[in-house]
């Protein structure tokens, strides 16, 4: 489980995270929802210790994030971090050098699933295919937790569907996933938990099936209530 407890963060005088608390279970998909600029990416960076926090605590399976944690948790940012002149298979080699948890069989499997050519240069890929390679690099690590920043934004519907399909497969099963999105409709049926954010704060955290069961409401219904209140 990833526990985010009372996290506060300021950029200069601007408070970007305001007493944020939520949890993300292993084996579940937790979705951080909110419009651009509410702090979704900042939280992910904070979990990954890529940015310092002013107060609060972040735990993974009860322990603080250290250097060792990065074999257990990975972050897939919304843009690819590999050098553009690299070929896909060169990016694989880079990942294999960098991470003990790199799983080459899984990378191969995903390459076929996404129908990508390993000899293609990253710079020459379409936006959709770049997003797929980016995703592939993260998914091919044998980690317990995956953080994905806006995996669906700015790509075509078929690529989106293909990426969504990954979420229903063994590639994700058993792992804990946190994804951010400002567009929930594509993935309403895929997620276990929603965390609604606005202006650096968590407004509501709920299990989506429970809300459907007990209140007869969709995620979007709850969002309307929360954001228009």
């Amino acid at each position: 489980m990833i526990e985010v407890k009372n996290v506060n963060k300021k950029y200069g005088r601007k408070q970007v995270l305001k007493d944020i608390s939520f949890t993300a279970e292993k084996g579940e998909i937790t979705c951080l929802i909110g419009i651009n600029g509410v702090g979704k990416t900042t939280i992910m960076k904070a979990i990954m210790a890529l940015t310092p926090i002013n107060s609060g605590e972040i735990l993974m399976d009860g322990e603080k994030i250290t250097k060792k944690s990065f074999e257990k948790i990975t972050f897939i940012p919304d843009t690819i971090t590999m050098l553009p002149q690299m070929k896909i298979n060169e990016a694989f080699a880079f990942m294999a050098d960098f991470y003990k948890s790199w799983n080459p069989q899984r990378a191969e499997e995903l390459l076929q699933f996404f129908k990508l050519d390993p000899n293609e240069r990253i710079a020459n890929l379409s936006k959709g295919n770049t997003a797929k390679v980016n995703m592939l690099l993260g998914l091919s690590l044998d980690v317990d937790y995956l953080l994905m920043d806006e995996p669906f934004s700015g790509i075509d519907i078929f690529s989106r569907e293909q990426i969504a399909e990954v979420f229903t497969s063994h590639l994700i099963e058993e792992r804990g996933v946190i994804i951010t999105t400002h567009e929930i409709s594509d993935i309403e049926h895929l997620i276990d938990k929603a965390v609604l954010m606005d202006d650096g704060a968590v407004l509501r955290e709920f299990s989506v099936e429970e809300v459907r069961e007990n209140e007869g409401k969709s995620v979007v219904d709850v969002m309307r209530e929360v954001y228009r209140a």
Binding site: E28, I29, T168, H189, L190, I191
Partner: peptide
């Protein structure tokens, strides 16, 4: 889960 594109937990 894969056929119906739903969460395996569901």
């Amino acid at each position: 889960a894969n056929q119906l594109k739903i969460n395996p937990n569901t």
